[in-house]
Amino acid sequence: MEPATDRRSAARQADRPMAPELVARLRKQYEGLISDLLGEGLTDAGYAVADTAVAQGLWPERLHRPIELHPTTQSRPFLDPADFWFTSHLERHWDLIRAEIDAIEEPARAGFSTAGMDGSSVRGGRWHQLMLWDRGRRFERACGLLPGTAEVLSAIPDVTAQGTGFVMVSWLEPGTWIAPHCGPTNVKARTHFCVRGDARARIRVGDQVRGWDEGRCFVFDDSYEHEVWHDGEVPRVVLILDAPNPYLVDGERVVRQEQANRADEMLTFMTAMRLRRITRVGADVKVTFAPSMVEFIRSYLETRQLESVELRQGVLRVRAVATPGGEG
Score class of each variant (00 low, 15 high):
P3Y: 10
A4V: 15
P20L: 05
R27F: 04
K28V: 05
K28R: 14
Q29Y: 02
E40C: 12
G41R: 07
T43G: 11
Y47L: 14
Y47P: 10
T52V: 10
R62P: 03
P66L: 01
P71D: 10
S75L: 13
R76V: 09
P81Q: 13
L96D: 02
D102H: 07
I104C: 06
P107A: 01
P107Q: 01
S113Y: 00
S113D: 00
T114M: 13
M117R: 13
M117E: 13
G119S: 05
V122R: 02
R123T: 11
G125F: 12
R126F: 03
H128G: 05
D134R: 14
G136S: 11
A142G: 12
G144V: 07
G148Q: 07
A150G: 14
S154W: 13
V159Y: 11
A161D: 14
T164E: 12
G165W: 04
F166M: 15
N186W: 09
V187P: 04
R190N: 09
T191A: 13
C194G: 07
F218W: 08
E227M: 02
W229Y: 12
G232Y: 01
I240N: 06
V255C: 03
Q257V: 03
Q259G: 05
R262S: 07
E265S: 14
T268E: 11
T279P: 03
D284G: 04
T288G: 10
P291S: 02
E295L: 14
S299Q: 14
V309P: 00
E310Y: 02
V315S: 08
L316M: 08
A320V: 15
A322C: 09
G325W: 09
E327Y: 07
